[in-house]
Nucleic acid binder design. Sequence first.
DNA 1: ATTGAATGAGAAAACCTTTTCTCACTTGAC
DNA 2: GTCAAGTGAGAAAAGGTTTTCTCATTCAAT
Lengths: 362, 362
Amino acid sequence: MTQELVKAFLKPLQKEEALNLTGGKRGRITIHEVASAAGVSISTASKALNDTGRMGAETRERVKRIAGEIGYRPNALARGLLSKRSFTIGLLTTDTYGRFTLPVMAGISDALVDHGVSVFLCAIEDDPALAQTHVDAMLDKQVDGIIATGKRLDRRLPVDLSNLHVPVVYAFTEGTQNSVTFRSDDEQGARLAVEWLAKIGRRRIAHITGPEEFFSVRERAGAYHEVAGHREPVLYGVWSESWGHDAVEQLWKRPGEKPDALFCGNDQIARGAVDALRERGIKVPQDVSVIGFDNWEIVAAQTRPPLTTVDMELKELGRQAGLTVLALAEGRPVEPGVRKLPCRLVVRQSCGGKPPGNETKE
Amino acid sequence: MTQELVKAFLKPLQKEEALNLTGGKRGRITIHEVASAAGVSISTASKALNDTGRMGAETRERVKRIAGEIGYRPNALARGLLSKRSFTIGLLTTDTYGRFTLPVMAGISDALVDHGVSVFLCAIEDDPALAQTHVDAMLDKQVDGIIATGKRLDRRLPVDLSNLHVPVVYAFTEGTQNSVTFRSDDEQGARLAVEWLAKIGRRRIAHITGPEEFFSVRERAGAYHEVAGHREPVLYGVWSESWGHDAVEQLWKRPGEKPDALFCGNDQIARGAVDALRERGIKVPQDVSVIGFDNWEIVAAQTRPPLTTVDMELKELGRQAGLTVLALAEGRPVEPGVRKLPCRLVVRQSCGGKPPGNETKE
DNA sequence: ATTGAATGAGAAAACCTTTTCTCACTTGAC
DNA sequence: GTCAAGTGAGAAAAGGTTTTCTCATTCAAT
C-alpha cells in the first residue's frame, strides 16, 4: 500500500516536469495539464471529470479536486467537434427595434442558460442577403438549432429555413409547413380585454386598432365583435399615437352617444387616445375606460393614467421556444404545429373598476 | 496529356464509390467529401480552398468548383480548434431593457458580420452569479473577445473581466484600468443642444434632468452652465415623463419671468415637459423650445411636436467597439483609454428655428 | 546522361476532448 | 497453485481542419 502511494506521488511529479519543460504554452489549461498534475492519463482524467468509466473513488476525487484547483474548463470547441453538439443556438430576428425580440430573447436565454447553451443574436432587417450570411455563419458554427422571430405573426422571414439539417423553431413569426411555431393567442387576449371592460360595467366599447392587413388585427377585432357585438365601430389605422389621437377625434365628432370604453390595438394607440380624451376634458377612467395591448412598459406605465393592457407573455413564449429547440436538438420528438400561448391582463389605472395593486411586473 | 486527364477522371470516381459505400454518413459535407470528389487528398483540398500551398492552377480551380457544387462549408469548430480563433465574440449587457444595448449590438454586428464574426448576446441583470455563468460559458466556447455594455456610463458590470485571457472592450459602461472604453461625449452633446437653442434666439434656457448622481447628468449640466450661464436653474429629478411634467409645473409656479427654452436630460423628460406646457396653453415651439436627449425614436418621434434631440450615436459606438475587439483579438495593438464619440443633433419640430427636413433617420 | 532546382501533391501531426478497447493486476473460488 | 471474474487505468481512435514536412516528378542546365 505504501509502495503504491509512493508510486502515485512520484509519477505525477515526473510527468509534470517533463510537461512543463516542453510545453510552456501560454494557452488555456487543457485536460492535459489536469492529467499530468493528477498523475493520470488523459483518458482517466476525462472519465473522472465526466463521471464515466471505471476507476477508484479516490482517483476520481483527486482529479476533480485538482481540476478545480488549477481552474480547468473544458474546451467547448473540441468537445463539440466530437459530440456534434455546440451548445449554441441562433436567434434570427427581423425586429431591429427590439420591442418583441428582447423579451423573447430574455426568455430563451433564461431557459437555456442552465443547459449551458449560448445564443447568437442576429438582427436581419428585411435583407435576404444579410439573412443568408447570418444563417450560413450560424451553420458553420454548428449551432444546435435556430429560433426565428419577427415583429409580425403573419410575416415570413426573408430566408428559407425549411431544409436545414438543424432544427428550427418559429416564435412570433410565421413558420413553414411541419414546423413548430409559438405565437400569442391574440383572440384570447382581445377577449380578456373586452370581457374586463364589460365586467366593470362598460357597454359602449369601441375598438381602435392597426392596419386591417395584420392577421392579429383581424383576430383581435373578431374576438372583440364576439364579445362586444357590433354596436360600436372598429376603427382601423396605423400603429401610432397620432392615430389613437385622431381616432378619438373621429369618434367624438360623430353624432349620438359616445363610447364609454376604448379597446386599443396597442399601447401607443391607447396612449394617443388617452391624450386626446384629456384634451377634450374627458376623464380617464371615470368617464371612459381605455385598454391597450402589448404591455410595452415604456408606453403603458408612463401614460397618465397608467394603461391597463394585455401582455402577450413574450418571455414565456421565448422560454418555450428555447426548450423546444433544445428538445429537437437532443433528438426528442416534438409535435409540429402552431402553439398559441395565452395572454395576460395587466391591470393598471386606465380602466377603473378595480383598484391597482394586482399589477404584475415584468 | 490525354492519359493524365483519364487518370484524373478515374481516380476520383474510384474513391467516390469507396467512400459512398463505407461512409453513408448523415452528417454535413466535410472536406473529406470535397477531396474525394475532386480526386485529391485532404491536404490539397484544404490548400486549394484557402489559397495557400503550392499546386497547379487547374487543380485549385477544380477543387474550388467542386466544393461549391456540393455545398461544402468548413466546420468552424474544427477550424477554431486549431487556429485558436472562434470568430465569435460575446456581448455582455446589464441593460435588459435594450434601450442602449440594441443600437450598440446593431453596430457591433454590422461591423463584424463582414469578418465572419458572430455575437453571443448575454443579458445579465445585476446578478453577479448569472454574469459569471455567462462569462464562463463564453470562455468555454473560446470567444475571441468580449464587449461589455450597460445602461450607465458610470457603473461597472457585476463581474470582473480584467484578468481574462481574451480581450475586453467596454462600451457605454465603465471600464477597468488599462482597458479600452468607448463612450458618448455627453459634454459635447449638451453643448450642441444648448448652443442650438442660443442660436435660434433663446435666452432663458432651463435644464430639467435626471438624478445628480449620474455622471452623465453632471457632465451635461456642466456643459449647460458653460454655455447658458447660471441665469436659469438646473432641476434634478428622475428619468421619467412625470418628472418632466412636474418640473414644468415647478418652473411656471415660480414668480418672475419664465424660461423660453427647456433642455431636458432625456426624451422622456422632454415629452413630459411638452405635455405639461400644452396643458398650460403654452405653445411649443412658438413660446418655448424644448430639446431632449437620447433620440429614442419611439418617444422623440411620437411626441407632438416631434422632439429635437441629441443622438449619442450608439450604433457607431458599437461599430467601433466591434472593430476594436476584433483588432485586439488579431493581436493588433490598440491604445488603451477612454474614447469619447461625438453626439449629433437631430432637429425635429420642438425647437422651431429651422424648418424640419434635415432630420436624419436611424 | 547527371545533377539541381522547381513544382505538384500527399502523409502526418496538431488542436482538445470523449469513448471504446485492451491490458495488467487483484481477488476469490476451486 | 490455477482459473475466472472483476477492477483500475491507459492506449488509441475519432471528430474536421490546417500546416509542415516529405516525396516524387518534371524540367532546365551542366
